[in-house]
Design a protein around this nucleic acid. Structure first.
Length: 526
RNA sequence: GGCUGCGUAGCUCAGUUGGUUAGAGCAGCGGUCUCAUAAUCCGCAGGUCUCCGGUUCGAGUCCGGACGCAGCUACCA
């Protein structure tokens, strides 16, 4: 039995044919929020990401560029990781499927499945383009021709390939879905997969002949392992399958595979069947997230004013970017991006609300008390949240985040915590109170500082930088290190005698964290 | 063509096993405050829940159909 404190989470590995785009980023952010949250809950998290490099397209692309495939994929892997780092993705590992650990694990796996009798050799018939020197799938064919070589006729060629007997696992798969209702999420995806399997699966071709880039089939040197059979295995080869069994047993099975809704079938049908064939345990959960559509940008692109969503975080920072997608696009469903919508959300939720709370709180502490609230430790800091059932709220948030309901969680934090925070200031009016009763004002400000601390913890999984900035704006870290703080710390203020503003100030005022986006006045049609 | 999902306020979405006047945020409008990034706070307005039919004492919620949108249909998140 695996240690229940371990939490192993993965994302889909990406094709390095092009740079990371908004869809891939959406997935990584969603998985990252979960990873960060689980760490805060005290789990020993292992968060894996990677690139899918054993495809024909990689070798073709490398050839076009005149570089070695390995050099090409290494460069792309570096570029991907640069982006993930800029988005504050906290993955613990990044696998490239061209790495030796993956090759060794794949060969061991396919051999095990072969030995167990689930793989056999059959004729594969497909349309072959002599120009590309490759088989073409239906999708790659336009009007019966290869789009790259429209003058050449496609040839129907039969080739001996290895097939995985997926069909044999239909009943066991259905039984597993039945026994484990949470295996596939959200619910709609689960229904789709069940009906897919009920309609009948096909045995799948898992090898190809005559390629040099890729993983050799151990029991047949002429063949390389083909796409999905190789790609899915990254989840186990990355953690030591075939190279470090002790580590593998410590981490497997995965707690959740975070994937796009388009590849649920591979993860929910093929992958479990492969694991069954090899006698390995199945992952506990597979979450198929939705897609982000880029409607607004498409429209404004023609006007030449579009900002590539992937540039947004370079302009406004990773946190507003992360917030936008986690709040505006329900993770299990689809969402949209547009420059206008981004600006609206940013201004309303970041500039006017979150960032402004930071400014007004710190500025009053500095202005009225020189930045130090003496004797804060003996002041009750719960008045700001009177009328709010914080314990209940935190419990709800934990459930929501654990279920990937990020947009609902963020909505709740803004609506119930931040609004409560603002209303407390409004009702106590410390800016008036200071003229008549400095002691009472101090009590209010100690409460505001405490609200800052609570907000910092609540937003930590979503907005790591902002959360840290909030927490470090007072000297809370002297009593409880930021890196250790989790939702369990929310009810317990660390014991600090004097609260001090430690945030950087300029002319006695904090620098606005999120300067408003000035909206271009919309052109008026006359 | 087949399968799946969706269609609720100007925009983005909540609406639990059908049950009282359909909810929220943003945008809009009016007022208020001045600590703060002209932010906050209070209030107002805004919906024949795509359409047609059915089941029911009662339907946004269930059933059938129409229209529209999206995804998948076996190697693109």
């Amino acid at each position: 039995m695996r240690d229940p404190a371990v939490f192993y989470i993965t994302t889909a590995i990406d094709y390095p044919n092009s740079r990371p785009h908004i869809g891939t980023a959406f997935e990584k952010i969603g998985a990252d929020v979960q990873a960060r949250f689980q760490r805060m809950e005290g789990r020993s998290v292992h968060f894996l990401m990677g690139n899918d490099e054993n495809t024909i397209k990689v070798s073709q692309r490398a050839e076009e560029l005149g570089v070695e495939p390995q050099a090409y994929v290494d460069d792309m892997a570096r570029q991907f990781q640069d982006v993930w780092k800029a988005l504050e993705i906290s993955n613990d590992d990044f696998i490239q499927t061209s790495q030796e650990r993956h090759h060794l694990g794949c060969r061991k796996f396919i051999q095990a499945v072969y030995d167990a009798g689930h793989i056999d050799k059959r004729a594969y018939t497909g349309l072959y383009c002599t120009g590309c020197e490759a088989f073409k799938t239906d999708k790659e064919i336009a009007d019966g021709k290869c789009p790259n070589h429209p003058n050449l006729a496609l040839k129907e060629i039969a080739e001996e390939n290895y097939f995985f007997r997926l069909t044999d696992f239909s009943d066991r798969l259905l039984a597993h879905y039945e026994a484990n209702p949470d295996f596939i999420q959200p619910e709609s995806r689960r229904n789709e997969i069940i009906s897919l399997v009920k309609e009948g699966l096909y045995d799948v071709s898992i090898s190809r002949k005559g390629f040099t880039w890729g993983i050799r089939v151990p029991f047949d040197d002429d063949q390389t392992i083909y796409v999905w059979f190789d790609a899915l295995l990254n989840y186990i080869t990355a953690i030591g399958y075939g190279t470090d069994e002790e580590r593998f047993n410590r981490l497997w099975p995965a707690d959740v595979h975070v994937i796009g809704k388009d590849i649920t079938r591979f993860h929910c049908a093929l992958w479990p069947a492969m694991l069954m064939a090899a006698g390995l345990p199945l992952p506990k959960r597979i979450f198929g997230h939705g897609f982000v559509y880029n409607k607004g940008a498409k429209i404004s692109k023609s006007a030449g004013t579009a900002i590539d969503p992937m540039e947004v975080f370079r302009i406004h920072g990773a946190d507003p970017f992360r917030y936008y997608f986690m709040k505006e696009c329900p993770f299990g469903g689809d969402g949209n991006y547009s420059d206008e919508r981004f600006a609206e959300v940013y201004n309303a939720d970041f500039a006017n609300n979150l960032g402004n709370l930071y400014s007004r709180t710190l500025s009053m502490c500095v202005r009225y008390f020189g930045g130090t609230l003496e004797g804060a430790g003996s002041i009750d800091p719960t008045a700001w949240r009177s009328g709010l059932d914080l314990d209940r709220l935190v419990a709800e948030l934990r459930t929501l985040i654990g279920n990937f309901s990020y947009s609902a969680a963020l909505l709740k934090i803004w609506l119930e915590i931040l609004d409560c925070f603002n209303r407390y200031i409004q009702s106590t009016e410390p800016f008036k109170l200071i003229k008549t009763d400095p002691e009472a004002t101090k009590v209010v400000l100690v409460n505001l500082a405490e609200a800052m601390r609570v907000v910092a913890i609540l937003i930590k999984p979503f907005l790591p930088s902002t959360a840290e900035t909030f927490y470090r704006s007072f000297n809370f870290g002297d009593a409880r290190a930021w890196s250790d703080v989790g939702y369990a710390d929310i009810p317990n203020r660390p014991t600090i005698a004097n609260l001090t503003v430690t945030a950087p100030l300029k002319d006695g005022k904090p620098t606005p964290l999120f300067p408003k986006i000035e909206l271009n006045p919309t052109a008026v049609d006359v």
